[in-house]
Structures are given as C-alpha cells and as structure tokens.
Simulated scan of single mutants.
Amino acid sequence: MADSSAQERTEQPTPKRQEEARKKGQVPRSRELSTTVLLLSSALGLVLIGEPLLQGLADLMRQGLQLERAQIFEPKAAILQFQQGVGEAVKIITPFLALTLIAALAAPLLMGGWSFSAQSLGFKWEKLNPAKGMKRIFGPQGGMELLKALIKFLLLSGVGCLLFWLFSPDLIALGRQPFVPAVFQLAHLMGWSLVGLSASLALIAVIDAPFQGWNHTRQLKMTRQEVKEEHKETDGNPELKGRIRRVQREIASRRMMAAVPQADVVVVNPTHYAVALNYEQDKQGAPRVVAKGVDQVAIKIRTVAAGNNVPVLSAPALSRAIYHSTKLDQEIPAGLYRAVAQVLAYVLQLRQYQRRGGPRPQPIPNEFPIPEDLRRD
C-alpha cells in the first residue's frame, strides 16, 4: 500500500521538469484564448478601418473596369494594369493583414509563450499511435473539448440570434437605400456582429485558460521517487556527498594533528578552546595557527601537544580571540602581536630553563592586551 501511494503523482513539477517539457514543446496553451484574441482583433480592425478599406477596393475595381479603347487592343497594357491593380490591392489590405498577423503572434504570449526547440519542431511518431488518439478522444480531454464545442454552439447561436434581433430594423432598412450606401452599411453591421460574436467567445476563454494551466501542471506532476532521483542528478547523492565531507574532515583533522608536534606553543581555554601556534622568524612575518579546535578536538590537541613536549599555556581570552579571528594556516592579526609575543617570550625562557637550569621564569599572566574588536567573551 505504501509503495503504491509513493508512485502517485502528488508532487508539483520542479523547474527542471518544466524546462524539459518546454523543450519538448509541452507548454500550457489555450486554443480558445488564441482564437478569441485573433477574431476579436480582426473584428475591431474591420470596424475601425473597414470603411476606408472597402472604399479603396471599390475605387480600385471601378478604375480597373474603366478601360480606354486603345487599352482593349493592347495585351501588354491589360497585363500592366492588372499588375498595378494587384499592387494597389495589397497596399490597401496590408494594414488589416498586419493587424491580424500581430494578433496571431501575440496571442500565444498570453499563455505559455513560444517554443522553438528542436524537440518541439521535430516529427513525433507517437502522435500516429491510434491507442493514444482514441484515449484523447474518449478521455477527460476529449470530454472537455466536446463540452466546450457544445457551449460554443449554444453561446454563438444565442448571441447571433440576439444580434439579428437588435440589427433587424437596420437590415430591413437596407432595401430602401441606394446600392453603394447599403453595401457600406451592411459591412458596418457585419463588423459589429463579428465583434459581438468574438467577444462572446471570451467567456469560454476565461474558463478554458485557467483549466489548461491546471491541466498542464497536473500532467507534469511527479512522484516522490522522481523528485528524489532528480535531486540526485542535479545535486548529487546526499549520502555520497555526506560521506565525502566526513572523509574530508577526517583527512583535515589528521593533517592538523600531525602539525601539532611542530608547534611552539598551544594556548588553551582549559575547558573549551585550544590553538597551536608556530613561529619561524626567518620564514614568517608573524606567528601562524597550525591547529585549532573546540571541545573534543581541543582535548585531542592538548593530548598530542603533551605527548610531544609542546608547552600548553592557559590564556582563555587570548585562545578565544585567536580561534575566532584567525583561520587555519593563517597568520594572527596585528592586534594580537603583543599578546602572542609575550607568550612566545615566556616559552623561550621556559625552554632555556629546561636546558640550562637557573632561575625559573615567572608565570605569564592570564590576561593579555587584546583589542576590543578581537575579544570574544
């Protein structure tokens, strides 16, 4: 039971999954929205520029039918006039065609955008699969398309009847008008009728667009196992990465402990901190931290130092300041020079005493001159 529930697609698609789907051309798309934008733009274009467009085409036809006697018996003149007429016709309808083209290009940007990847443009053999085709027809998607078609039929029929009832007095009045004004009035009525019919489709588009977005997300949903596998591919196996980090820490810890015997002194806070310092006057500008740690690591540093006759001095404030201000294998900051110099001077006196005897050096104080910005209480 747990295994079957784990395979349910309950997880939201990841950005990688969405990007892969886009590369395949699988983007949310509402045909109703695109159709509505295209039809409504074309209808408004006819209303706004329909009269000058129709007037221009009528004038062009009138000029084309007014031929002089010499032109009738000259084949080249007729061809030339035809070419000129076609060019003029293209100029007249270009604004309307440009508006339609802009609407066709802009409509997909309202939802999903354009997708021109090689995978989306390539031929897909699975689209020829009859089983998948029947599933689309008789499945939920096919049912939704059938419902939309039925709603569109009823909606357009109702709006068409309403427009016919509203414009019926104007349509009847066309029979009493001269031919040319009647044609322009009819074009005007047809333009506004097309605007009304196109606007009615917006009701379907408003419902269809969110549905297509939801359906697209539903199709891209992933199982929990798929999400885990994707994380492994993008971020690497967490278990392996954790093991690598543990090994790296162990190697760094062994390297650090190997440097403790070469330290000149280990400065400690008796319960928490330990910092091992090394200073080679001819090679270094300032003492360098060769090992540092807290709690168990600090105890190990003190143990290794004691086993290798490295002096261990208690200076709580100084040990904390060095630990927090200096990284491993770095020189101490200038603000700690004076305090560390006192420690190293004491260590040098202590070693001379151990080798030659004489008066034992005075113990160093627990407090050292540490700048306020380097203190860690």
Rank of each mutant, 00 (worst) to 15 (best):
V343E: 03
Y323G: 08
L348D: 07
A345L: 05
A315Y: 04
S325W: 09
R351S: 02
Q330F: 10
A334L: 11
G357Y: 05
G307D: 15
G335L: 05
A341E: 01
G358K: 11
V347N: 12
R355I: 01
H324N: 09
V310H: 00
R338N: 11
I332L: 11
L328W: 11
Y323V: 08
A341L: 01
P361I: 04
R338H: 14
K327C: 03
Y353A: 04
Y337W: 06
T303K: 12
S319D: 00
A317P: 04
G357A: 04
R356P: 00
G357H: 07
Q362Y: 03
Q352L: 07
I332N: 10
P363K: 09
L318T: 12
L313P: 05
G358I: 01
T326V: 15
V340K: 13
Q342Y: 03
T303A: 07
E331N: 10
P363C: 02
V310P: 00
Q349S: 11
T326R: 14
H324E: 11
L350C: 10
V343M: 02
Y353R: 10
L348S: 11
A306N: 15
I332A: 08
G357K: 09
T326L: 12
T303I: 02
A345V: 14
G307W: 07
R351A: 02
Q362C: 01
L344G: 14
P359G: 06
L348G: 04
R351N: 06
S325K: 06
S314P: 06
Q352Y: 03
L328I: 07
I322W: 10
S319M: 04
D329M: 13
R356A: 09
L313V: 13
R356M: 06
Y346T: 09
Y353V: 00
R320V: 01
P311N: 04
A317K: 12
Q349E: 12
R356S: 12
A341D: 01
R356C: 02
Q354R: 15
S319G: 01
A315L: 03
G358N: 06
P363S: 03
S325Y: 10
P333A: 07
R338D: 08
P311S: 05
P361G: 05
A317D: 05
V347K: 11
S314C: 04
T326F: 13
A341P: 02
S325R: 11
P363R: 13
R355E: 14
I332K: 11
R320N: 02
I322R: 10
V340G: 09
L344H: 13
Q352G: 03
N309H: 08
L344W: 09
D329G: 10
G307R: 15
I322Y: 10
S325M: 05
A315M: 07
A321F: 06
S314A: 14
Q352C: 00
L313A: 00
L344P: 13
V347P: 12
A315N: 07
S314Q: 13
A305P: 08
P363Y: 06
I332C: 11
Q342S: 13
I332H: 11
V304P: 00
P359M: 03
V304F: 02
R355K: 15
I332D: 09
P359K: 14
G358M: 06
Q354H: 13
R338L: 09
K327D: 15
